[in-house]
Design a binder for these strands. Structure first.
Lengths: 107, 107
DNA sequence: AAATATACCTCGTCTGTCAAGGTATATTTG
DNA sequence: CAAATATACCTTGACAGACGAGGTATATTT
């Protein structure tokens, strides 16, 4: 990874929610998709991912269900809730503001 | 403060270096200036500020000297070094990349 | 005399990240 | 066919930056 994790810190939940807005998905897939979207520049570590899932579920922003795979490893799917959608809007707003602020402070 | 600290996390050092590029300054003043620059949206907490100073000095990115105040409280001034200037360029580059990445991931 | 502003600092806690470890199934490779 | 790799889940403990809470000292304002 080229970007230090402290700069990405705090964005994990928003990134996951954004992904789930497109479609329900499961941990392994989300991880792969994020790497792909960033041309492998950013790999969300598994431990980070799963602890974020716990927080998001705790907050009521996502709900989970088991896939009905008949072959292969079982998959735990995640879906975004209405509250999660609202929270995502907040995260995005916050990001816009933070971005402007940091841009203002770094010149 | 309206922006959560986790989003700002990791930018503290870059923000301080950016400020010192303009001119030497001291803790209390830097803090005030940053609040002013962001219209009071972001207050770098003192404990955060001073621990960042320690790291920056440790890394050789800043050097310090005492002001020669004849009245009022003493001031410890900070100045950016050549290494600090280089480091700042790196931080800035990293920020540009991270910004693009997060923008790509949040839609 | 008390409150506020300027100016410095430390200690201990909190929280998100992640390295390292684990389990289980299916497929590919030598 | 055994070993390696890929898919898929998970937990534990350590680390580091942010910061609340506390402290010291001087000068000015109320």
């Amino acid at each position: 990874m080229s970007i230090t994790s402290d700069i990405l810190r705090g964005h994990t939940e928003a990134i996951i929610l954004s992904h789930l807005l497109e479609q329900d998905s499961y941990g392994y897939q989300i991880n792969k998709d994020i790497m792909k979207k960033t041309d492998n520049a950013y790999e969300l570590k598994e431990a980070t991912l799963y602890s974020a899932f716990r927080r998001l579920e705790q907050a009521g922003y996502i709900r989970t269900y088991w896939g009905d795979e008949t072959v292969g490893a079982r998959r735990r799917y995640y879906a975004i809730t209405d509250e999660g959608t609202k929270a995502y809007q907040g995260y995005k707003q916050e990001w816009q503001e933070a971005k402007d602020m940091i841009d203002k402070l770094l010149r």
